[in-house]
Design a protein around this nucleic acid. Structure first.
Length: 475
DNA sequence: CTGGGGAGGGGGCCC
DNA sequence: TGGGCCCCCTCCCCA
C-alpha cells in the first residue's frame, strides 16, 4: 500500500488501516516540510538563490521571493505584480518597523520559531499586521494573553476579553502553557503553517495597513467606534449584569499614574482608588508592562490628509482601529485586555475608566439625579427624598413616596438606613463603626455643600468583604 | 412584540 | 499625558 501525501491510500480495496497510514503520512510530511524549511533557511543564510531584497531602515535582508510570497499577504501583493518576471532581485523597503523586528519575523518564516519577548511582542505584532501575517499575529495575541495571564477560570468570567473564548489558552491552562512554550525559542519548531486557535479571528487581523470593515454579529455590541471597524468588546452586556464573583477585587496600578483629588466621590471611594496604588494586581501589572513596551512606532499608520501631508495614527495591534494619540490607544487597549482598573466599592462592579465609575457611582449609589425615579419629575431636596434600596439609591418625590407606601424602604439619613447600611458593610465591631463615623465626619467636612446632602452614601461606599455577589437589589 | 428609558461602554477631542 | 466631557451606541428591562 502506497501512502500518498494527503493521507489516502491508493490501490487497495481492503479495509485498510487508514489511520496508521495517515499518521505515517503526516509524519512523513512533517519531516519533509521541516527538512525543506531547514534547507531554505540554510540557503537564505548562505544567501543562495535569494531573489528578494528587503531593506528595513537601511539594513538589508535577503530572502526568497516564493517563501515571502507564501508567508505574507503584503509580499503576496507586492510580488504578484512581477510574478512572471525572472529578472533582478525584487527590493522592498520598510521604515515602519525595525530591522530587529523584521529579523524575528523572517526567522519565523524560515523556521517556524517566533522569538517573542515582552519587549518585542507589540512591535512584532504591529509589523506582522503591516505585512499581513495572520499566523504571527495570532501567536503574538496568544503570547500577550499568556503574559497578561487572563484566564476565564482563574479570574472573572466577565472581564475576560480578547476573543470569544476561542483561544485554547483560556480553555486549558496547561494547553496555554504548552502553547506559550511553543512560542519560546528554546522549544521545538512550532508548526508551520501554525494551527491557529481561531481562524475566524483573522477577520479582524487581516487588516494590515488598510482598514477593513468587520462583520457585526448578533449580540456584538457596536458602538460608535465599532462602527468604524473596531471589533466587539471583550464581554457582553449580559455578562456584565451577572453577579460579580470576585470577592476581593483586584487593585490596579492603572489609576495610580497620578494621585489626584477626586472631590466628587466620598472619601471611602477615593480611598479605594488610592488603594489602586497599593499592591498591584498581577494582570494590571502585566498590563502595565505591556503598555511600557509599546514602542513609539507601534501600529503607526500613515494616513494622508487632503493636502497630502502625512497624518500619523496609532494602530491597535488587536484590531483595525486607529487613533490619533498613544494615550487613546492605551485606553482602547483595555477593551482588548479586559483590564478594569476602577472597581466600585459599593457593588464591586469594575470599570475601564474612572469617568465610567464615577458616572455609575453618582447614578446608582449617590442618587445625584434630581429626578423622581417613578414619575420622572424634577425634585428638589424639599420635594423629594433619597431612597436606599440595597446599595442602590435613587430619588422619589414626596407624592410618589406616599403613593407607593415607601415606608418600608429605607429613607436616606434615617436611623434604619444607617444601621442597614452598616449591616451591609459588615461592620464588625462598634469600634469599626465609630471609626467609620469619624471618617465620615471628616469627609463630610471636606465635602462641598452639594455632596453633603447625600452624606449617607458614604456609609455604603465601603468594600464588602467576602461578598460573592453583587448586593444590589433590583426592582 | 414594541418602544422608551436606564445603564454601561467606547471614541473623539479639549484642557 | 492623563483627566474629563460629550456624544453615540448597544443591551437590558419594563410598561
Amino acid at each position: 500500500m502506497e501512502p500518498v501525501s494527503d493521507g489516502r491510500t491508493r490501490g487497495s480495496a481492503l479495509p485498510v488501516p487508514q489511520q496508521v497510514s495517515r499518521v505515517s503520512s503526516a509524519d512523513m510530511m512533517a519531516t519533509h516540510q521541516s527538512h525543506l524549511l531547514k534547507q531554505l533557511d540554510e540557503q537564505r543564510r548562505q544567501e543562495l538563490f535569494c531573489d528578494c531584497h528587503v531593506l528595513v531602515e537601511g539594513q538589508l535582508f535577503k530572502a526568497h521571493r516564493n517563501v515571502l510570497f507564501g508567508s505574507s499577504g503584503y509580499f503576496r501583493m507586492l510580488l504578484s505584480r512581477g510574478a512572471d518576471e525572472c529578472g533582478p532581485p525584487v527590493t522592498a523597503s520598510f521604515e515602519a518597523f525595525s530591522p530587529d523586528t523584521f529579523a524575528v519575523i523572517l526567522d519565523f518564516v524560515y523556521s517556524g520559531r517566533l522569538d517573542l519577548t515582552s519587549a518585542n511582542v507589540i512591535e512584532v505584532m504591529s509589523a506582522a499586521s503591516y505585512l499581513q501575517m495572520n499566523d504571527v499575529i495570532s501567536f503574538c495575541k496568544d503570547f500577550i494573553k499568556c503574559s497578561l495571564d487572563i484566564s476565564v477560570r482563574e479570574d472573572d468570567d466577565r472581564y475576560l476579553s480578547l476573543s470569544e473564548s476561542k483561544s485554547s489558552l483560556k480553555e486549558e491552562p496547561a494547553a496555554a502553557e504548552q502553547q506559550h512554550a511553543a512560542l519560546s525559542p528554546s522549544n521545538k519548531v512550532a508548526p508551520w503553517p501554525p494551527v491557529s486557535p481561531k481562524a475566524e479571528h483573522d477577520e479582524e487581523t487581516k487588516s494590515g495597513v488598510g482598514v477593513l470593515p468587520l462583520k457585526r454579529g448578533p449580540g456584538v455590541a457596536s458602538n460608535r467606534g465599532r462602527r468604524r471597524g473596531t471589533p466587539a468588546p471583550p464581554q457582553t452586556r449580559k455578562a456584565e449584569t451577572q453577579p460579580f464573583v470576585t470577592p476581593n477585587p483586584e487593585r490596579s496600578t492603572r489609576a495610580s499614574g497620578k494621585r489626584k483629588a477626586w472631590s466628587s466621590l466620598p472619601r471611602a471611594e477615593t480611598a479605594s482608588l488610592l488603594d489602586l496604588q497599593g499592591a498591584p494586581s498581577n494582570k494590571a501589572r502585566k498590563a502595565d508592562e505591556l503598555y511600557a513596551t509599546l514602542p513609539t512606532i507601534v501600529g503607526v499608520v500613515g494616513i494622508f490628509n487632503k493636502d497630502s501631508s502625512p497624518s500619523m495614527r496609532f494602530k491597535c495591534p488587536f484590531c483595525t482601529h486607529t487613533v490619533k494619540r498613544k494615550a487613546d490607544l492605551k485606553r482602547h487597549l483595555r477593551c482588548h485586555t479586559g483590564e478594569r482598573p476602577y472597581p466600585c466599592d459599593a457593588c464591586s462592579k469594575r470599570f475601564t475608566r474612572l469617568e465610567h465609575l464615577r458616572s455609575h457611582f453618582e447614578t446608582i449609589h449617590q442618587a445625584r439625579k434630581l429626578v423622581c425615579r417613578k414619575c420622572k419629575r424634577h425634585v428638589t431636596e424639599l420635594s423629594g427624598r433619597v431612597v436606599c434600596e440595597g446599595t442602590r439609591r435613587y430619588r422619589l418625590c414626596n407624592e410618589c413616596i406616599q403613593e407607593s407606601g415607601c415606608d418600608a424602604l429605607m429613607m436616606d439619613g434615617s436611623e434604619e438606613a444607617h444601621s442597614a447600611a452598616a449591616l451591609f458593610l459588615g461592620a464588625d465591631t462598634e469600634e469599626d463603626e465609630e471609626d467609620r463615623e469619624d471618617e465620615e465626619k471628616d469627609w463630610l467636612a471636606a465635602e462641598d455643600d452639594d455632596l453633603a446632602v447625600d452624606s449617607g452614601t458614604d456609609l455604603i461606599i465601603q468594600e464588602v468583604e467576602g461578598s460573592d455577589e453583587e448586593p444590589e437589589l433590583q426592582n
